[in-house]
């Protein structure tokens, strides 16, 4: 399947996907509500069969007041990949957990929770992954500061 075919197949799955432009691979934007169902569709579709979640990460768009979740899916049968984005409110970042769809999402979501503070619903074990359990705040947010950090002497 080439890029356009893949994209049109994905878009025909549900009207909730919207295509994104200027990306290096096929990319769509999905709503956060019902993300689990949409991802299940992508995984179980016979021609898409995205059986692998390679990347789950987040971006802090501080000016827009959003946090974007980015998922990169790969199909080990057809060797194609797809990027799925989902925008969350920066103040109340709540997203459904995808650990029931791909088991690896459990750890990747723990990392995103640790560094960006995204709360995942129905996550089996939402603890910090990299930092200490008593850490305050989420350091990969752009406005994070603490006593240990040194400010740059130039601007």
């Amino acid at each position: 399947m080439n890029r356009t075919e893949l994209l049109s197949t994905v878009l025909s799955l549900s009207t909730e996907f919207s295509p994104r432009e200027k990306t290096d691979r096929p990319a769509v934007l999905a709503p956060v509500q019902g993300l689990t169902d949409l991802m299940l569709k992508l995984r179980d579709h016979s021609e898409l069969s995205f059986d692998m979640l390679t990347v789950a990460t987040a971006i802090d768009w501080i000016k827009e007041g959003k946090i974007e979740l980015v998922y990169i899916l790969i199909s080990s049968t057809f060797k194609h990949s797809l990027q799925v984005g989902a925008l969350l409110d920066r103040e109340k970042p709540v997203a459904p957990s995808l650990s029931s769809v791909w088991a690896i999402a459990e750890w990747q979501e723990r990392e995103i929770f640790d560094l960006f503070g995204v709360r995942y619903l129905n996550h089996p074990d939402l603890r910090r992954l990299l930092l200490e359990d008593d850490w305050n705040g989420h350091p990969l947010r752009k406005d994070y500061v603490d006593d240990f950090m040194l400010e740059r002497p130039w601007r």
Binding site: P139, Y144, D146, F148, M149, L150, E151, R152
Partner: peptide, 10 residues
């Protein structure tokens, strides 16, 4: 990583 790092020992 000396500036604006929350984790690196200097």
């Amino acid at each position: 990583f000396i500036y604006q790092s929350y984790s690196t020992v200097r």
